Simulated assay, not measured.
Amino acid sequence: MDGGKAGGGISATAGAVVFDRSNNGAGQTAGPVAAASNWTPPACYYAPKYTPEQLQKTLEPIWQAESTGYQWDAEQRDRYENGKPYKDFNKDKAGEGYWWDSYVTQGREGDPGALDCEADIFWVDTNDDPPADIPQAITPEILAQLAYAEIRVPTTEVDLAPANATKVNLPTWAWLDAAKFKPVSVTASVPLLGVQATTTAEPVSVKIDPGTADAQTYPASGVCELAGDRIGEPYAKGKAEQTPPCGVKYLRSSGNGSYQLRATVTWKIHWTGTGVDNEQTLPDGEFGGDQDVIVQEIQAVNR
């Protein structure tokens, strides 16, 4: 369970991972970035959970209840108490390491991937790496991926000119003040292990979807790249005859309604962490928003 506030500050998941969200996006319109590919951060992971005494207090009542079957109980007793391979819950190593167990990533409780962490509870000595054959064991890279899931970015509403309603065949300028879309970051750490990773998201472009096939985007791809401190270019008097570097031209009236223009910002994701010399990348993220655009016919005056 997350013990902190959703909006920011420092909070901890049960037992191991601590998140610092003080540089994260905030506000009611902020939301999680979704990877542009099919990649997702891990739904479960392994991290320190028990001291020797805590593991004993956790397992012995289960064995005594005999609710898990004699064979399973006997195998577990052999594994953790009878020296196959651990003896007496590793009490002779108290203070020299921790028992690691699985955690489900917050918000992924119903995800099928949450069932992927099936390894038995295992011991890791202080300053040792977790077993290489357990890919979900906490490392700086796993921490970076968990931090990715915590990143929040503002929803996207582009400025348009004309602002309230545009006309058929009239180029409509679109732009985004990049100052409103500053880089955001989340740091995930395991204080018990002295490892951490900071994952950062930076806006790089916005994709314009006019909400109808009867439209032409500028540029043709609909993708407007970040240039300096903004995406696109604000409309100014005297530019009516120019082609906007970012925008849309509607070819048909929206009638009595409106089109749903969707602007989706692509965020470049990268991370750094303990023992990592060079900046590492993660899949780009996306987050967008819809806005109404009224398109009117140009009224001709007959004389």
Rank of each mutant, 00 (worst) to 15 (best):
Q76T: 02
W63T: 02
K57H: 14
D73W: 00
D78S: 09
D73R: 00
L59Y: 15
E66I: 02
A65R: 12
Q76G: 02
I62F: 08
K57D: 15
D73A: 04
A47Y: 02
L55P: 08
D73L: 00
R79C: 01
R77E: 07
K49F: 03
E66W: 02
T51M: 08
C44D: 09
R79Q: 13
T68K: 05
E66M: 08
I62H: 05
K49N: 12
R79G: 00
E60I: 13
Y70I: 01
K49R: 15
D73M: 02
Q71A: 09
A47W: 04
A74G: 02
P52K: 06
P52F: 04
Q76C: 02
C44N: 05
L55S: 14
Y50I: 10
P52T: 07
W63L: 08
E53S: 14
Q71F: 01
D73V: 02
T68A: 01
L59H: 10
P61N: 11
Q54F: 03
K49V: 06
E66G: 04
A74D: 09
Q76Y: 08
K49P: 04
Y45F: 15
S67E: 15
R79S: 04
S67K: 15
T51L: 12
P61D: 12
D73C: 00
G69C: 03
Y45S: 01
T51Q: 03
D78A: 10
R77K: 08
Y45N: 01
Q71T: 05
E75R: 02
W72M: 05
L59C: 11
Q56H: 13
L55N: 13
E66N: 10
E53A: 14
P52A: 07
Y50T: 06
R79E: 07
A74N: 11
Q56C: 11
G69S: 04
Q71E: 10
A47V: 03
A74C: 01
Q56K: 14
K57V: 05
W63M: 10
L55C: 14
P52Q: 04
G69T: 04
Y46M: 04
G69Q: 07
R77S: 00
T68D: 09
E53V: 12
A65N: 10
T68F: 11
R79T: 10
D78Y: 01
Q71G: 00
P48Y: 07
P48E: 08
T68C: 06
E60W: 08
K57C: 03
P61S: 12
A65S: 15
W72H: 05
P48G: 09
Q54T: 04
W72E: 03
P61E: 15
W72P: 00
Q54W: 04
I62R: 10
E75K: 00
L55E: 13
Q71D: 13
I62G: 09
A74V: 01
E66Q: 13
W63C: 04
Y50W: 14
L59D: 12
T58M: 15
A74S: 08
Q71V: 11
S67G: 15
K57L: 12
Y70E: 06
R77H: 05
P61A: 11
Q56Y: 12
E53P: 03
